[in-house]
Design a protein around this nucleic acid. Structure first.
Lengths: 114, 114
DNA sequence: GCGTTAATTAACACATATGTTAAATATGGA
DNA sequence: TCCATATTTAACATATGTGTTAATTAACGC
């Protein structure tokens, strides 16, 4: 799976987004992160695995604790991807832009806007 | 499922992102959108259904064609959500910010950073 | 060593996602 | 009416995601 898909897929779960929000406050252990939720610890553990695989968190080791830390590189990548569409809602995209696009050839297959 | 999760889930598929990129060039029919891909038309039709359910596209009706149109509101919502994390990679988040966060109480359960 | 706490892995259940092919529906035009 | 084109729906196969409980691994401290 490509990186961006993996990131967006990881972010598509509300529990995982809530975990990231908690980590935005600073490092936390698995138990810390699990406390607000009604789901089991193994479930949280697997959510963290998904987040780690996507590079959205990193994990240290302090005795029997595994402190989790927010990593923003993938979020930045989402922001960059989104940036290509930003003109569509920021007013710079008007009827003339639409016309200029219409007279262009059909696009690529890369998954990115042009 | 909450709106943001639905949006991110729809965006997590590379085929669907490529479809959006095509639509960034202007309206297109289902066949237009299917052309660049090696998958069947029904598969594309279902991808479009997912995008439409997430509000990322809208569909008109012209004879037997169903022209698709990019809708940016959900993308804007992603941008807004992401904005809360932007300070983490934009330099305004330094050691003092980290300290201020550390002395705060642990956060909410809303899925949003504070 | 042994019990306690922290976290992960195993085994399972169940729902959802994504693709296929074949059939159905909708519209335009000879 | 009847055929061609555009698109969707049906039925199916298969993979992945998310949760559970029970068992396992890792590290601390008496």
């Amino acid at each position: 799976m490509d990186t961006l898909s993996q990131t967006l897929s990881a972010l598509a779960d509300p529990t995982r987004r809530a975990i990231l929000a908690q980590l935005a406050q600073g490092e936390a252990t698995v138990n810390d992160l699990a406390r607000p939720f009604d789901i089991s610890l193994p479930a949280i553990s697997r959510h963290l695995k998904v987040l780690e695989a996507a590079g959205l968190i990193s994990r240290g080791r302090e005795a029997q604790w595994r402190p989790c830390h927010l990593e923003t590189a993938p979020l930045k990548a989402v922001d960059t991807w989104l940036g290509d569409y930003r003109r569509f809602w920021e007013g710079s995209f008007d009827r003339m832009d639409a016309y200029l696009q219409l007279i262009q050839q059909k696009p690529d297959t890369t998954g990115d806007p042009q």
